[in-house]
Nucleic acid binder design. Structure first.
Length: 806
DNA sequence: CTAGGGTTAG
């Protein structure tokens, strides 16, 4: 094999390409013929110095040929820094060399604070640091995020004339990048009188580090233009930029360059390529590169397994594992296991996931924060929150990512209160939430729908200066819309400087849940004018907006447009929206045939939509038909039974009502207690039907009474569909004292005129209350917003935004 | 005696 490789390299070296590309390299190359292939670690330190300042021109402070310093070096290298320090104290401190040895010892071992302390002590002792001292100290500053310290040292370097040293400048570039001061890094780089290969590599990877992938690639290109020959590190950094920035075509170009430079069989570069292609969604290319690797190692396999996971090929991922273990006789490492877990999730393979967990314990992989976080995520995705919690609680070392994962798992499984509690716990620790934390917790605020708390978290996010983050802003838009403050949502949207497709989908959906379809449509065309390509979710937002607002013709139009103009096949969500739309028109025949003609298997959501349509029309037979289907698919049928039972009651089929109720009892599905919430500056006020527990109860009922009389609604006689035969039942659950009305009345007396009254409700608003609140809005001339389990009703002047269908 | 690197969790 070695012979073949050498042969390859000779071909490349003797060809004219490198010379033409890199004329400056010719001389250097001869003295540095040995090519680094990645399989031999000792090669990895090989350097090319192509610039004017070559190593031999440097004046070294060579170690004095005495006994003690050599012992010190050996002690440091053996790892016992304490012994080394003891020895150091006994030595002559006039020699810079021994200081350097000690400082380096600390930095190498990750004891950065100690390294810097020793550097300071050196200054107090009157010993000047030299060109060997500073790279270690600068690195320590970078690792400690000590910006001020680093800048001070940088200033000092200027003073003592070491600010032009290549090694020192290279370390400064990396330090500034680690501190996210890429401008300073660039300044150092630009002002260097001579740059070497490492300088260029440092700048390329610095840009990558701060996620300025394009700048990174530009820097690489510039390097080529200047005539510097990239080495494997340059290639890897540039490929990394392509991979993170999803620049697949640039990645391909880099591959060509790598081939021309003779890196064809460099495992590291091949692995980088696999990763890049995998992340860019070009699985076939990744496979092709992988197949060309002469001797595959675990890292390459890991990259391939990860690529399969990223491209939703879990079977192939597990297939790879098998080949890796059997044919290549390799063993798995942490990363292999981490990369396999998403494939378990994709396959729904709980057992495999658990056995990986068991394996990690048996083989001593744990504790390992990344692996444990991946396990936690897997359990979260499977909805096994108990095990996710156990994993989280058992972790020895939790980082912010771990916390974020646990919060996200809670939120995704609807455990909003738990999520908020954990978020508070995180704040009470020394950890500072990042944009991911904030974006993960925001849906919990949206679901709990407390506008007051929503505003608080918004303020907190502003203070953290995360508002410029697109994902965060998108979540805030959704949060405000869900909490009922559409105006606030719109304000955030309008002020966003970097909108993405999700921003547009979210704002369109915001108007959908507030039943303002016209504005959704307006926004959709605005979006197109701004050059955004709609995706599946865009149409879900748009179609549900049409449905919620009763824009039937427009709904059909966009449904057709979706296929014709955008070539998108409707998914089950789109069919659901359309079914709601058809349901509005009351054309039940059309609804049933629409379901029959659907190319997809109807889900519970689809049947639920049909059930709702038949409820509106009072078609009990169809309702029963839809309900039957729901019973056969879903576990929680409570809502279904309630709808049926109400429908039976409306036509006076009491025996059926009884039957339904007894089934519910047997299945132990409790009817959810209906309640309504309104918020004042002092907190939440929760009302159930006929609630008299509120401290202002008397006042509320007085207001309700006055309003009822004004509206011409006589006590206990109202616009209900219930038959008089059920008078007793009716008066027991008179809609006049329904929770929404109580909440609305309290809202009217506890908020200032000019502001809307905002009420949230956990169940759908009943028809009587809908009529009632329309009238209340008319007589009080107040805007009343009621968010029920499906949409927000904006009442004003006796009308509702939903157009009386919900 | 110095600086840079591939796969990994949201």
């Amino acid at each position: 094999m070695a012979a073949t490789l050498a042969y390859h390299h000779n071909i490349f070296w003797n060809s004219t390409t490198p010379e033409r590309c890199f004329p400056k390299l010719v001389k250097e190359r001869k003295s540095n013929r040995k090519f680094d292939l990645g399989s031999e670690p000792e090669c990895s330190k090989s350097r090319f110095c192509y610039t004017t300042q070559s190593k031999c021109q440097k004046v070294y402070s060579l170690p004095p040929n005495s006994f003690l310093p050599r012992v010190l070096v050996e002690t440091v290298e053996s790892g016992s820094l304490e012994d080394a320090l003891n020895l150091f104290e006994k030595m002559n401190h006039l020699d810079t060399y021994i200081w350097n040895v000690m400082i380096r010892g600390y930095t190498d071992r990750g004891l950065f604070r100690e390294a810097i302390n020793l550097y300071h002590r050196m200054g107090y002792d009157g010993i000047r640091g030299d060109n060997f001292t500073y790279p270690f100290v600068i690195k320590a500053c970078g690792e400690l995020f000590a910006l001020i310290e680093g800048e001070k040292i940088h200033a000092k370097l200027h003073k003592i004339g070491l600010d032009k040293d290549v090694y020192i400048c290279n370390s400064l570039i990396i330090m500034y990048a680690k501190l996210w001061h890429i401008d300073s890094a660039l300044r150092v780089f630009a002002e260097m009188p001579s740059k070497d290969l490492v300088s260029w590599n440092s700048m390329i990877s610095s840009y990558s580090f701060v996620k300025e992938h394009l700048s990174s690639l530009k820097c690489f290109r510039e390097m080529l233009q200047v005539g510097i020959r990239p080495d494997r590190f340059s290639m890897i950094s540039a490929l990394n930029a392509c991979s993170l920035g999803l620049y697949a075509s640039t990645g391909k170009e880099l591959y060509c360059i790598a081939l021309r430079l003779g890196f064809e069989l460099d495992v590291m570069i091949q692995t980088s390529l696999i990763d890049m292609y995998g992340k860019c969604g070009k699985l076939d290319y990744a496979e092709r590169v992988f197949d060309r690797i002469p001797i595959r190692n675990v890292v390459a396999w890991n990259a391939m397994i990860n690529s399969y996971a990223l491209n939703a090929q879990p079977v192939k991922a597990f297939g790879s594992l098998k080949i890796m273990l059997q044919a290549d006789n390799l063993t798995v490492d942490n990363v292999t296991l981490i990369n396999l877990l998403p494939s378990c999730t994709q396959l729904g393979a709980v057992l495999q996931g658990k056995s990986i967990h068991g394996y990690t314990i048996r083989k001593g992989f744990l504790p390992h924060p990344v692996l444990e976080t991946a396990l936690l995520n897997m359990y979260g995705e499977f909805g096994i929150l108990k095990l996710a919690e156990v994993t989280f609680n058992h972790m020895m070392e939790k980082n912010l990512v771990t916390w974020n994962a646990m919060i996200a798992v809670y939120v995704q499984n609807g455990w909003n209160c738990k999520a908020l509690k954990l978020f508070e716990e995180l704040l009470s620790e020394h950890l500072r939430p990042d944009t991911v934390t904030v974006a993960s917790i925001l849906p919990a605020y949206a679901n709990l729908a407390s506008l007051r708390e929503g505003r608080q978290i918004h303020g907190y996010i502003m203070k953290l200066q995360y508002l410029s983050n697109t994902v965060v802003s998108n979540s805030i838009i959704y949060m405000y819309a869900s909490c009922g403050d559409l105006e606030a949502a719109r304000k955030i949207f309008d002020r966003m400087t970097c909108k993405d497709i999700v921003s547009w989908n979210t704002i369109i959906m915001a108007y959908a849940i507030h039943g303002m379809g016209r504005i959704s449509i307006e926004l959709f065309s605005q979006m197109e004018r701004d050059g955004f390509q709609p995706n599946d979710s865009t149409f879900v937002s748009l179609l549900s907006s049409c449905s919620n607002s009763g824009l039937v013709n427009e709904g059909w139009e966009y449904y057709k447009l979706m296929k014709l103009n955008y070539g998108m096949e409707p998914k089950i969500e789109h069919y659901g929206c359309m079914l709601d739309l058809i349901g509005r028109t009351g054309k039940l025949d059309q609804a049933t045939s629409f379901i029959e003609e659907m190319p997809l298997l109807p889900t519970a959501r689809i049947w639920g939509s049909l059930l709702n349509a038949s409820r509106k029309k009072g078609d009990i037979e169809l309702a029963e038909f839809a309900a039957q289907h729901i019973f056969s698919t879903e576990n929680d049928n409570t809502g279904c039974y309630v709808v049926l039972s109400n429908m039976y009651a409306e036509v006076g089929r009491w025996e059926k009502v009884k039957e339904t109720k007894s089934i519910m009892k047997k299945e132990r599905s409790e009817k959810t207690l209906a309640y309504s919430i309104t918020e004042t500056n002092f907190g939440l006020h929760r009302f159930t039907n006929h609630d008299r527990s509120h401290i202002e109860s008397d006042m509320i009922y007085n207001v309700l009474d006055i309003l009822s009389r004004k509206m011409g609604e006589k006590k206990c006689i109202h616009n209900t569909k219930f038959k008089p035969s059920d008078f007793a039942r009716k008066s027991a659950n008179s809609p006049q004292n329904h929770s929404v009305r109580l909440a609305v009345c309290f809202g009217l007396i506890s908020t200032t005129i000019g502001n809307p009254v905002l009420v949230r409700k956990n169940t759908r608003i009943c028809e009587d209350c809908h009529i009632g609140i329309k009238k209340i809005s008319e007589t009080t001339r107040r805007e009343i917003i009621v968010g029920d389990s499906k949409v927000f009703h904006h009442f004003g002047d006796g009308h509702c935004s939903c157009g009386d269908y919900w």
